[in-house]
Design a protein around this nucleic acid. Structure first.
Lengths: 242, 242
DNA sequence: ACGCCAATAATGTGATCACATATTTGCAGG
DNA sequence: CCTGCAAATATGTGATCACATTATTGGCGT
């Protein structure tokens, strides 16, 4: 299940590519994105990029400032708390509603993702760690067909993705207990309350400390905006190595 | 607060226009929407319509079938239940989180919307009834700044809008107790639990019977798909009067 | 008359161009 | 060496065109 290549339309490919890039935090917050720049980088025309960006904006993944810039939204503490609250609210409900539809196949697929997650963790491979984590949750929520929850949840993932990546890179994952095995156990036992608790704990565990530790980082939680004196022609330092 | 005209870009105007049309159910489910058709109807070029449609698709307001058609999604019973559950989950939480930020001005504005709602109800003016109802809720949730809940909630409104309209036109509003006054009362008393209960009751009250009564309507809950023999050149009966 | 099949029309996608405007650069003045 | 202003560049928006694909129409064979 690599990148699910060979999509129908170019715009879908571009959108999918940018979408996973954002969700996995491969694009740093504040990094300037331009239509023509992305078009050249991806080797396509400007038109598909245009529509992909607009679609991503509708998904709250990017923010198109009125002036002439489009960027990944800046994370603030209050926004972070809102996102966490929305995730807990939405995902625990989605999990509970998906429980009756979870088959053995669902559970085994979740176990595979959990194994991939653990494997990525020991390698400090944040890219695959995040991907496996999202896949784990998505597999559960997708068990219920015709889900209206999933698009909303993925919108939240798009918003926390860049932040999670920065958090992982700066403080590293700090899991003590594995909530995923608790969730899997609850699934097997068809225990609604235990599942809800496990999902909520999973979301809060991996994030709360990160949030608290990150509150002490610079306010912006984004790349330097290159403001100040217009004498920044020395070099476009996209990101200081440390 | 009419249509908030005079937006900056054409695409924003088109998007806003179609968005309210859908949310208020002015566009019947299943009605075929084409880029060029809408462009001509709105007196604009095809480009803004294209982007507006793609944006609406990202908001789950419309569904672009792979073939060559774009339509308002068909409502099914399970989808309806999911939408209601998502609304209850998300909106009650958003209400509680907005409560500390609700000022006197917030409450008075909500009262104005509630009055407009009542006025529209006696006139059987479903258009303004729905608009006032959404405005009532939006005013509350917007009290908390930087809300990540509101876009998700509005996405749900876009999905239930067409259905609510059909429901209202077919069975009429069936409110017995006014949950809005209960919500306002809870707001004034800063009673978190009472507010949550009032919001949840408000959502369920106005909808559940409608849903049950509508389950007996034709499965599709949409316009006839004009399928069957290709000999439909007689007339395009957009909607039988009864 | 009905159903299948080719011909025609319509639609979405992508590309390129023009234009208004914001941003960046270049240069002078303090 | 820094600051402010004008030229130059870059960018988003919108429009138009070409093309592949799909839906619709008209006619033919049973």
């Amino acid at each position: 299940m690599p990148e699910m290549l060979e999509e129908a339309t170019i715009q879908q490919r571009v959108h999918g590519r940018l979408r996973t890039d954002i969700m996995l935090g491969r694009i740093a917050p504040g990094e300037p994105l331009t239509i023509r720049g992305l078009a050249e980088k991806l080797g396509v025309s400007a038109m598909p990029v245009r529509e992909a960006l607009r679609r991503l904006a509708a998904e709250q993944a990017i923010e198109l400032l009125g002036n002439r810039r489009v960027r990944i939204p800046i994370m603030s503490v209050s926004r972070f708390e809102d996102l966490l609250a929305a995730r807990v609210t939405l995902e625990s409900e989605a999990a509970v509603r998906a429980l009756p539809h979870a088959t053995e196949q669902t559970i085994s697929e979740m176990e595979r993702h959990d194994a991939a997650l653990d494997a990525a963790m020991v390698r400090n491979d944040y890219d695959n760690w995040l991907a496996a984590n999202f896949a784990f949750h998505r597999t559960l929520y997708s068990a219920r067909p015709d889900s209206v929850f999933l698009p909303l949840i993925e919108s939240l993932w798009l918003q926390v993705g860049p932040f999670l990546r920065m958090a992982l890179e700066n403080v590293g994952p700090s899991y003590t207990v594995d909530r995923h095995v608790e969730a899997l156990q609850a699934l097997r036992e068809r225990n609604v309350m235990a599942l809800r608790i496990a999902i909520e704990a999973d979301l809060r565990d991996g994030i709360t400390h990160l949030g608290q530790r990150l509150m002490r980082m610079d306010e912006g939680l984004a790349l330097p905006q290159k403001r100040g004196g217009h004498r920044s022609r020395t070099r476009d330092i996209s990101r200081p190595p440390t």
